[in-house]
Design a protein around this nucleic acid. Structure first.
Lengths: 372, 372
DNA sequence: CTGTTAGCGCTTTCAG
DNA sequence: CTGAAAGCGCTAACAG
C-alpha cells in the first residue's frame, strides 16, 4: 500500500533508524549512506507519516493561528503576516504547517480549536484579535492556554491584552467543574504565553482629540460589539479624549454593533435619530466607517462638509474610499510578524512577555472642521 | 506527565478499549459505563492525542483549505464558507480541524502544503483560486493530487478548472525524475478529485458585452497575472465579446498585472499612455478596478462620465465604492459551501465530478454610455 | 456489552 | 557512524 520508512530502509539497504536520521538531519550520517537513502526516498516517492512521527517524537510540525473572521482583511493581513513568519521560510529545513483557524468570533469555537490544536500537539498557537470579556469564557480560555503551555506549546496573543495569569483550579462561578485529582502541583508550566498588543486606547484617544481640535463637540461613536477587549479599549480612549476637553459623554451618542459595514450603516441611522446635529462620527473600524458614510449620504449629509467620519485600523481600502478615510493606523503586518517570530522562538521574548505596538493617526479627507 | 487513555481507563475502572469506544461513540457502551468514563475524562481533563489516534486509525481529523492570499477578501470569503461547512457543524460529533493554508500564490508553496497535508494524512483538501498554468507545475500538482487521492484524501478544486487526469509516472519534461519501482499499477486510485468552477469566461463576456451595448468601442483591459487559469478565462470572455461585435482587439489595450490595487493603478496609467481616448476599462477584479479608478481620477478623468470602469467578483466593498462598481458577481459563498460539502462527502458528487456555477452581471454606477 | 491482544510508522536510547 | 529493540498513545479485530 503506502510507502513506509521500512520500505525506504530496505531499498537503501540500511536500517529504519538510519533513514530517520537522514530525514531529520539531527544526527551524523555518512555522506554516501545519506545519498543512498535520499535516492530511495525519491524513487519511492516516500512521504513521511506525520502522525507517526508526532507520536514518537511527542511534537508535531503543526502551528495554529486563530482568527475571528478570515473574510475580514484585518485578520487576513494579520494571519498572512503571522503565517509567513511561521512557515519555515526555507531557512532551517524545519517545514512547519502553519494553519489558520476561523472562529467566526464565537468563544466556543475558539475553545474548540484550542482543544483540537492541543490534540494535534501543535508546536505553537497564536490567538489574534480582541478577546471576549465574559468571565466564564476568560476562565475557560485561561485554563486551555495553561494546559497548552504545560504541554510545551508556545502561545502568543496578538491584538489582545495579556491573559490574567495564576488561575488555578477550583475557582468558583465557572459553569464546569473540573474536580480535584489533577496532576502534580506547579512544576511543569511550560513556556509562558506571550503577547503582542496594540495601543487601541491611545489610538482612539488621539483620533477623538483630532476631531475635538478641529472644533467638533457633538461626536457620535459607533463602537464595536460589547464584551470585546478591543471595543472597550477604543471606547475608553474616545471617552478619555472627551473628558480631557470637558465634553460631556452623552449616552445616546454611543451605539454598539458588529465590526462590519451593515452595523455602521444601521448605527449611523440610529445616531442621527438621537441627535440630528452630530458634526462627527468615530467608527469602530474602517469597514464600519464605510457603512456610516453610506447612511450619511442617504440622509443627504456630505462627508466631511456636514459630518466628519473617522475609521480605525487603516485597512488598504481606506485610502480608496471617497473621501479617503481619516483613521488610526495599526501596524498589522509588524504585529503578525512579531507574533509569528515569538511563537517560533525566533525572537527573544521581552522580560514581561508583552510587546506593545503603537498606533498612528492618519489624517485624510473624511474629517474637517464642523460647518456651523 | 500528560494524561493518557490508560489513565482515564484506570480511573474509570474499565479497559482502554472501552474508553476509546465512548470517546468515538462508534460502538455500543452501557449507559452507566459511559457516564463513569466521561466523568473520569472531565476530572482528569483528558485531551486525546491526535497523532496517536491518527496513526492507529490511519485517518486524521485534519482537513485543509489552500488559498492564494488570505489577506484578499475573495479568498477570505471562499475560505470562510468552505471552512464553516467542513468543521463538523455540531451535527455529527465529528469535530474536524479545518485549516486554511496560505500559498501566497506561489506554486512551490502550494506543492509544499499539499505534501505537508499528505504527511498529516488530511481527510480532505480543497484547493481554491486560479491555477498556475505552467506545464511543469501542472504535472507536479497532478502527481501530488493523485497521491493524495490514492491515500484516501478527497481533493476538491474550487474556483479553478478540473485537473487533467491520467497523468501516470514516466512523463518526459518534468524536472524531477521519480523512477520505476513504484507501487502496483492502477488499483487503489482513491476518491477522484472533484471540482467547483466559476464561469469566468461567460461572466467576462457578458460584462464586455454590456459595455459594447452601451456604445463603447475603445475598451481597455487590465488582466490578471499571466499564466493563471482565471486570468486566461476572463480574457477569453472579453475577447469573445469583442470579436462577436466586430471590434478589433488592439494589443496595446490589454495589460497584465497582479490582482491588487497597485497593479490596477499602474495599468491604468499605462493604458492611458497607449491610448488617451479609451472610453472604458474592464479590470481583472474589483480590487484592481479601484486602483484603475484612482489613476483615472488623477488624470482628471471622471468615472463614469469620461471613462466607464468595471470590476469582477462583486466583493463587499464594491457597492461602497464611489461610484458603486459595475461588476460580475461570483457566488463565492455558495462555491465554498459546496466545495466544503463535497469534500466532506455531505453532498453527492455530480457524475462528471464538476459543478459549474454561473455568474451574474451586476450593473451599478461605474459604467455609462461613452461621452463623445 | 467489555476486556485482550496486536500492531499503526516512527524516533530514540543503547550497544556495537 | 549504524543497527536492534523498545515503545509513543490509541484503535480494531477477536474473544468472551
Amino acid at each position: 500500500m503506502t510507502v513506509t520508512l521500512a520500505d525506504v530502509a530496505a531499498r537503501a539497504g540500511v536500517s529504519a533508524a538510519t533513514v530517520s536520521r537522514v530525514l531529520n538531519s539531527n544526527y551524523p550520517v555518512a555522506e554516501a549512506t545519506r545519498d543512498r537513502v535520499l535516492r530511495a526516498v525519491a524513487e519511492l516517492e516516500y512521504v513521511a507519516n506525520g502522525p507517526a512521527s508526532a507520536l514518537a517524537a511527542a511534537t508535531s510540525d503543526l502551528v495554529g493561528i486563530l482568527v475571528n473572521d478570515v473574510a475580514d482583511p484585518f485578520f487576513g493581513i494579520l494571519a498572512s503576516a503571522v503565517q509567513s513568519e511561521m512557515s519555515g521560510d526555507s531557512t532551517s529545513g524545519g517545514e512547519k504547517l502553519a494553519v489558520v483557524c476561523n472562529t467566526g468570533g464565537s468563544p466556543e469555537r475558539e475553545l474548540t480549536y484550542l482543544t483540537l490544536l492541543h490534540r494535534q500537539r501543535a508546536g505553537a498557537v497564536v490567538l489574534t484579535g480582541g478577546a471576549t470579556e465574559d468571565p466564564a469564557h476568560t476562565a475557560a480560555l485561561a485554563a486551555r492556554v495553561a494546559r497548552l503551555s504545560a504541554a510545551g506549546t508556545q502561545v502568543v496573543l496578538c491584538g489582545r491584552p495579556p491573559l490574567a495569569v495564576g488561575v488555578p483550579t477550583g475557582d468558583g462561578g465557572s459553569a464546569e467543574g473540573p474536580a480535584g485529582a489533577s496532576s502534580a502541583s506547579g512544576a511543569d508550566t511550560g513556556p509562558a504565553p506571550l503577547t503582542v498588543a496594540f495601543d487601541n486606547r491611545g489610538g482612539a484617544r488621539s483620533l477623538t482629540e483630532h476631531l475635538v481640535a478641529l472644533g467638533h463637540r457633538r461626536i457620535g461613536c459607533v463602537a464595536g460589539p460589547e464584551g470585546l477587549t478591543t471595543t472597550r479599549h477604543r471606547l475608553e480612549g474616545h471617552r478619555a479624549a472627551l473628558a480631557a476637553h470637558g465634553i460631556e459623554d452623552v449616552p445616546g451618542r454611543t451605539v454598539h454593533g458588529a465590526y462590519d459595514r451593515a452595523s455602521g450603516y444601521a448605527a449611523a441611522h440610529e445616531l442621527l435619530r438621537q441627535d440630528e446635529d452630530l458634526t462627527a462620527v468615530v467608527a469602530a473600524n474602517d469597514t464600519v466607517a464605510l457603512g456610516v458614510c453610506a447612511a450619511l449620504r442617504e440622509h443627504g449629509l456630505r462627508v466631511p462638509e456636514d459630518v466628519s467620519v473617522a475609521g480605525f485600523d487603516d485597512l488598504p481600502f481606506s485610502t480608496d474610499a471617497v473621501p479617503a478615510l481619516t483613521t488610526v493606523r495599526l501596524p498589522l503586518t509588524e504585529a503578525g510578524a512579531r507574533a509569528g517570530r515569538l511563537a517560533m522562538g525566533r525572537e527573544p521574548a521581552p522580560a514581561d512577555g508583552v510587546v506593545l505596538l503603537s498606533s498612528e493617526l492618519v489624517i485624510r479627507k473624511s474629517t474637517a472642521p464642523p460647518y456651523s
